[in-house]
Design a protein around this nucleic acid. Structure first.
Ligand code: FES
Ligand code: FES
Lengths: 136, 136
DNA sequence: TTACTATGATACAAAAAAAGTGTCAAGTAT
DNA sequence: ATACTTGACACTTTTTTTGTATCATAGTAA
C-alpha cells in the first residue's frame, strides 16, 4: 500500500543528482541517466515535466542540459514527488465528490485527512539541500 | 500518490457494516454488498480473505454468512487495510534489498521510514468500534 | 547557411496491476 | 435429497505503469 512508483523514484534520484552538482553546472540527461541507472528516454520525460513546472531549467543545443530551477534549499521533496505522482491523496473521496458515503457522516474520512496532512508535512520538511548532503 | 484502491475502500465499507450489526448477528455477503453498493462477488472474495486472517468468522449453508471475528474494539483500521492492500510500504527499498542506492548512504530512506511509521500509527489508533459509531 | 546537438511534444507499445466474473466444490440446515 | 451459502481458483477486462520511437524545435559552431 501507498507505494511510490518507479517514476517517482527515478525522479528523486535524478533531481538529487542535479542538486549534488556545483551551482550553475549544466548536465546532460544522458549523464544523469547513466549515473542513476535509469533509462535515458524515460528520465528525459520526467525532466521535461520538471522543466515545465520550473523545478529545473533546461537548455537546448550543444552545451545544453538541465540544472536546478531554484536553490536546493527552496525545492522540497513534496514538490518533487507531487510533480510526478500528483497530489497526495490517500482516498478518492478526497478528490471526487460523494465517492464514499456522505462525507459529513463518514467516520473514516478524518483518518485519511490526517494521513494526508501528516505525509504532506513530512515531505514538506525535506529539501533537496538535505538530500544532497553526504551522509556521515 | 498513495491512493487506496477500490478493493481497500470496499473492504472498509464492508467490515464497518459488519461492525454496525448487533453483536453475534450473522449477515449475508449479498446483504452487505447491497447495503454498501459493492459487487457481491468482489466483496465475497474480500470477506473470504478476511476470514482466513480471522478478522471475520464465516458460516456456510442456510443461515450462514459473516460476522466479526473479534470485538470491534480489537480490530484496527490498519489490520483491515493491510489485510487487503498488503503492508504499508512507501518505497520498494523497504522490502527489496539494495533497490535504491545503498540504504546506509541514502538520505531519502529515513523519510520513507518516517512516513511508514506515521501512517501505521495513525491507522493503528482507529478501531472498528470508532468507525461504527454514528457521527454526531 | 549547414551540420550537429540536445531538449520538447506526441504517439505508440508492452507489461503489470487492479477490478471484476464464472465455475464448481464443500459444508449446513430443513 | 435439496436448497442455500461460503471457499477455492481460474479467467477476463480494464486501467495504470513503464517504457520506446519519431519528429519537431531551438541553440551552437563551422
Ligand atoms: S467520505 Fe471520505 S472516507 Fe468516507
Ligand atoms: S535506500 Fe531507501 S530510499 Fe534510498
Amino acid at each position: 500500500m501507498m507505494e511510490l512508483t518507479r517514476k517517482g523514484e527515478y525522479a528523486i534520484r535524478g533531481i538529487v543528482y542535479l542538486a549534488k552538482q556545483p551551482a550553475g553546472k549544466v548536465v546532460l540527461v544522458s549523464e544523469v541517466a547513466e549515473a542513476t541507472g535509469v533509462s535515458q528516454t524515460f528520465l528525459a520525460k520526467i525532466f521535461q515535466n520538471f522543466a515545465k513546472l520550473g523545478l529545473v531549467n533546461s537548455f537546448r543545443g550543444t552545451g545544453g542540459g538541465f540544472l536546478l530551477g531554484r536553490l536546493p534549499s527552496r525545492i522540497t521533496l513534496r514538490q518533487v514527488v507531487e510533480a510526478v505522482e500528483g497530489p497526495i491523496i490517500p482516498n478518492r473521496c478526497l478528490t471526487e465528490e460523494g465517492a464514499c458515503t456522505r462525507e459529513s457522516l463518514c467516520m473514516v474520512h478524518p483518518v485519511w485527512r490526517k494521513i494526508q496532512s501528516e505525509v504532506a508535512s513530512i515531505l514538506d520538511a525535506v529539501t533537496l539541500e538535505d538530500l544532497a548532503k553526504e551522509k556521515k
